[in-house]
Structures are given as C-alpha cells and as structure tokens.
Design a protein around this nucleic acid. Structure first.
Lengths: 139, 139
DNA sequence: CATAAGGGTTCCATTCACTGGAAGGTCAAC
DNA sequence: GTTGACCTTCCAGTGAATGGAACCCTTATG
C-alpha cells in the first residue's frame, strides 16, 4: 500500500507517517520505484499510534507501548504504569488550566468591556506587589 | 539594575528576560560595559509579562496587552476580547483533556496491572475497526 | 508523442516559548 | 593575581509535527 492509502485508513496525514518512519516508529518496505510500501501490520501500528496520540501519550510513551504490545509476554503492570503516569500528567494539566480559568474568568467578569479605558484585567496584570488584587478579593 | 537583580525581582529567569528583549517585549538600556541596564519601568513590564504568561496568554497576546496597557485611552473592550478568546482556548483545552482523562481512566481501571500479559489498555489501542471497545462499553 | 494531473520522494525551515551550553568579557574581593 | 560570580553573544535543541520547494513516477488523454 502507498502512503496515501495508509493515510486514509489510519487517519494520519502522510506527512506525519513519514515523520513516524523518520523517528523509527514504523519501518515500511520500499517498492522498486522508491515509494514506501506499507504492510497490513504497518497500517495496524499506525492506527495504534493514532489512538495512543489521541489519548495524549507522548511519542516516547508510544514507542514503549508499541514495544510492550509486540511482546506478548509483557506484564500488564508495565503498561498500566505508563498509563497511570500519563493520567497524572493529565490531572496536573487540568488542575493548572482550571486555576488559570478561575482567575481569568474573575477578571473577565469584572471588566466592563466597553469604550472606557478602566480595565481590571490590565490592573491585575500590572499590579504592584503588596496591593490588593481586587479581582481576586473573593479568594 | 543588572539582569540578575531583575530576574530575582520579576521571578523570570535571566535567560527568559534576554529572550523577551530579543523578541522586542522589553528594551533595556545598556551600560558602558555592555551589560543590560533595566529601569523601574522595565522591571514592571517584566512582572506584567510574568503574570500574563502565568495565566497562559501567548507571547503575542502579551505583546497586545502591553500595548493596550501603555495606551491609557484604550477601550476595556479590546482587553476583554483578548481575555475572552483566551478563556475559550482554555475551556477547549480542559474539555479535550477531560475527555482523554475519562477514556484513559476507564482503561486503567480495567487493567489488572499484574504479572500477566492480558491488558485492556493495549487491547483498546490495538483495536480493529468494527470490534467492540470493551473498556468503553459503558459510553 | 507530449503533457497534465495526481500521486510519490527528499530536504530544509518554521512553529512556540523557551532552555542549555560553550566561549569569553567584567567586576569585586581576598 | 586569581578566584568566583556575574555578564555577554551565539548556536543548538526541545515536541510533534507542518509547510513548502524542487523534483520523480504513473496513468490518462489529445
């Protein structure tokens, strides 16, 4: 199969598939004309990668997961550990964003958003140390 | 003031401050010895940048916000629009992460995490089109 | 036979916001 | 005079692609 067909099947852009070959995640064969020739197993691997990436696993996680997938003797604990670490990363990120969201949303609510120049958002960003952050007074 | 002092005061690494000069966010003076010489206003600007970045604003947002801050005639609506767009980005990101979290957490829960090779996490990632995603059966 | 459309190939640059490191200049203290 | 803490510039790398240029291959049509 050529790269275009694989792109359609796996949902990954051809560019991304070439990149994945570059970094050693897949190793398609080559046809006589120099075109990449993907086996069924390559397509399967790429779909696996697509799903793992969609869950936010890093490329290095994906590399590990593929290796574990290929090793039918692996302990599920190894896989679970990778997934749990990733889950923690996600939780930390969500917490960080949620905190940003809270602060920002206070500020946005406090801002009239009209033609006048007074703006609590800028006031907060420009705030001097030691002065009250009005928009956060409720915290 | 030299860069080290400003780094301490603003909480930004010296490296980052140099970078901000590079991309035109601050323009410190220079002493005779070639050292950067920061005015009070530069320190203030950098602290502003630190807070805006901590709220997740992009560098380009920061550039706009600084410009609006300097313009005492701006309409607060302009600031609010930037903040609201950013709030939307945050919300979209949180939603995306929350969805990832849900799927991943299903999978992690379903995985025994022991010495045996059976692993619902890998099974899901490797899933063929058309087969049931056991770990998502509840969706 | 020419050529045009629609594949494919490589290689280089760019994104975002820094961060690390090398090689070297400056300054204050001992 | 030399140590050590500063400072300087410049170059490279991060993650995970993405965009584009320049060029090759295949197939269909005039």
């Amino acid at each position: 199969m050529n790269i275009g067909d694989v792109a359609d099947l796996s949902g990954l852009p051809a560019k991304t598939i070439r990149y994945y070959e570059d970094i050693g995640l897949v190793e398609p064969l080559r046809s006589a004309n120099g075109y990449r020739s993907f086996r069924q197993s390559d397509v399967h691997k790429l779909a696996f990668l697509g799903r793992a990436r969609a869950l936010g696993f890093t490329i290095e996680d994906c590399r590990s997961l593929l290796k574990l997938y290929a090793d039918t003797d692996r302990a599920s604990a190894e896989v679970k550990q990778i997934a749990e670490e990733h889950l923690d990363r996600i939780d930390r990120k969500i917490a960080e964003l949620t905190e940003m969201r809270a602060t920002l949303s206070h500020l946005v609510d406090a801002c009239a958003g009209d033609h006048r120049p007074d703006c609590p958002i800028l006031a907060d960003l420009a705030m001097e140390e030691g002065k009250t952050r009005t928009a956060r007074a409720a915290d």
